[in-house]
Amino acid sequence: MNKVVWKDDLGLMDYKLAWDFQETLFKEIVDLKIRNRREEANLPTSNYFLFVEHPHVYTLGKSGDLSNLLLNENQLAEKGATFHKINRGGDITYHGPGQIVGYPILDLENFFTDIHKYLRLLEETIILALAEYGLKTERSPGETGVWLDVGTPFARKICAMGVRASRWVTMHGFALNVNADLGYFDNIIPCGIRGKAVTSLQVELGIEKVNEEEVKSKILKHFEHLFECELKAAVLNDSLNRTKIDQK
């Protein structure tokens, strides 16, 4: 089993371009697994962890309800936002500047074959990272993601999650609100859940701006420990036709 995970930070990237890039990496892994089974080979499959930040965008999961988007096409344009129906689980969510988005593209057969365990470990990664800022976050029964004050009238989500998996290969991931403009969540029913608020690390800490690079380093530390993997830095070429890794 290959437990090396190639990590890269793609910076600010259009949602569709990042989605296409994910699909390229995802297909590379799936195609190799199919080849291994067809040829009875044992070539190692790769694993990736991408950080990215998106311009304002709303995305609707395959099981989502379009009525949870409260804007029409003209209003989206006025907000400087785009909209995509995508192939992850979950309902509608928002991505934008000041939000840390993580896309682990893993062959889970390199780790464990349990999607529920995968989601719980992703949640735990964020819970442990936020604990370093003195925040007590937790899971909400039946609602994927990371929350504060679960079971109270003040319950609020700080990190949304939605994944896709096929042949035990994952894509999509989590979106952690760090310095995000939470006003953009007013234009949707987040994750299709009414009556619960959304928050950010900046709001919870009551400071002007959180160091996002510091947050990313904490996430990577806990991800590496929980998944018992080895993270290695790489430069990933976002070409749709090939993937190139230049090891640092």
Rank of each mutant, 00 (worst) to 15 (best):
C229R: 05
D20I: 11
I100P: 00
L182V: 07
D9I: 07
V146P: 01
R35V: 02
Q99M: 10
I245M: 13
G64Q: 06
I115T: 13
V5E: 01
L10Y: 06
L119Y: 01
L70T: 07
L106A: 02
K244F: 10
L69W: 08
R167T: 01
H95A: 05
N2E: 08
L240H: 12
D238E: 13
K33H: 04
L69G: 10
Y48W: 13
N179M: 10
E28V: 03
N187R: 02
H54E: 04
N211S: 12
E132C: 03
Q247V: 14
R156W: 00
L176K: 00
A81Y: 09
I219G: 01
K232S: 08
I193T: 05
I158W: 02
D9N: 15
G89Q: 06
T82V: 06
D107E: 04
E213G: 14
G64Y: 06
P44R: 08
V4A: 05
I158E: 00
S217I: 05
L106N: 04
V210C: 08
E73N: 08
A175N: 02
K62Y: 14
G173K: 06
K3G: 01
N2A: 05
L69R: 10
P44K: 09
W19M: 11
A175Q: 05
F154Y: 14
E208N: 12
D31G: 02
L236R: 07
Q99A: 10
D246G: 06
W19Y: 14
F49L: 15
L121I: 06
N87A: 13
F21D: 02
S63C: 00
E123G: 00
V163H: 01
Y184L: 13
E212F: 02
K244D: 13
